[in-house]
């Protein structure tokens, strides 16, 4: 089944969706990129013995909420790809608010029991509150490690935790199993955030994070840790308009161990998630294992390119 098409069709039953062309168009465009996160409730649902169809309301809810977060995040980050450049900040603010309500509404149109609907909606509502708080912390820029991990715990992990949790509930899993799926989702979200930060820090041309004095994890490490190239790194961060300066700053990220630190953080979470997954009594765990493997594939590629042993994955 095409979960993206099904998600848009499911939401079409809600009257406001049909009467708000810009909102509908946005979701259709998001669906056309097949965002990985929309699959997650379905994969969790299947893993506990349910079907992808049973998880469509959960996918629809997560889709609406993910799009609403991205709309707001783009405005906060002044992202040049942001929808607000096309239709203006006022329209985007209204659509983002509506999408959060639409996401919660999606649960109440499902065939699940009343208690399951309430559990799914409540968990999702808590996730929205946490993510919004994380966005608030993020715009202030993390100053140290504790700030950074608080933002990840508030902003990135809960969305993915909820995706797995509501998928489990949709598939008929017990509260206990669904809670474990949520813990798995938290680790999944943390790993996604670390990859996101690595991609941003090593991108050419410079990602807006560099220009806006933001601190993705590798940059935060190079700014905070007492290493010999730190003064030069801080100097380079003042003016990265030249490609050579960006390359030198990225070289420092590698030499000072910032990338190694991120890889260590990825591997530690991967191992924890593996052990957690083994402890959850699932009906079908192949797709969940594949999801986890996908998260570590870039690290495997890196080690292979360096001719390093892959045994570190099992230590």
């Amino acid at each position: 089944m095409d979960i993206f098409q099904s998600t848009v069709e499911y939401l079409s039953a809600i009257p406001v969706f049909e009467s708000w062309p810009e909102l509908k168009d946005l979701l259709k465009r998001a669906a056309s990129r097949k965002p990985r996160a929309w699959w997650l409730p379905g994969i969790a649902c299947r893993s506990v013995g349910g079907s992808f169809e049973q998880a469509i309301p959960a996918s629809a809810a997560l889709a609406c909420i993910q799009v609403s977060f991205v709309l707001v995040d783009d405005m906060l980050d002044k992202d040049p790809r942001g929808e607000y450049h096309q239709i203006g900040e006022a329209q985007v603010a209204n659509i983002a608010s509506a999408l959060q309500a639409l996401g919660l509404e999606a649960f109440f149109l499902s065939n699940s029991s009343s208690s399951t609907k309430i559990s799914m909606a409540r968990s999702t509502n808590q996730m929205i509150m946490s993510t919004t708080f994380g966005q608030y912390l993020d715009v202030k820029n993390p100053l140290d490690e504790a700030d950074y991990w608080q933002i990840v715990d508030s902003k990135s992990a809960p969305f993915f935790g909820t995706a797995f949790y509501v998928g489990g509930l949709a598939g008929g899993a017990s509260k206990n199993v669904s809670e474990k799926l949520k813990q798995f989702g938290y680790l999944y979200g943390e790993i996604i955030q670390i990859h996101d930060d690595l991609n941003d820090a090593m991108a050419i041309p410079a990602n807006p994070d560099w220009m806006q004095n933001r601190s993705p994890l590798p940059i935060l490490y190079a700014r905070l840790v007492d290493h010999p190239s730190r003064p030069r790194f801080l100097e380079l961060c003042q003016n990265l308009s030249q490609l050579e300066a960006l390359r030198e700053a990225q070289d420092i990220l590698i030499r000072c161990g910032a990338v190694s630190y991120c890889v260590d953080q990825l591997l530690r979470r991967h191992r924890t998630a593996q052990k957690l997954l083994e402890s959850i009594p699932l009906v079908e765990n192949k797709a969940m294992n594949e999801l986890l493997e996908e998260l570590i594939t870039p690290v495997r590629r890196l080690f292979q390119s360096m001719g390093e042993s892959l045994s570190v994955f099992s230590t």
Binding site: R29, R81, Q86, L295, S305
Partner: peptide, 15 residues
Amino acid sequence: MSALESDLAWQQWDA
């Protein structure tokens, strides 16, 4: 390091 590049990110779509 380009081996680390991936589409593992929050945002996989844009305007």
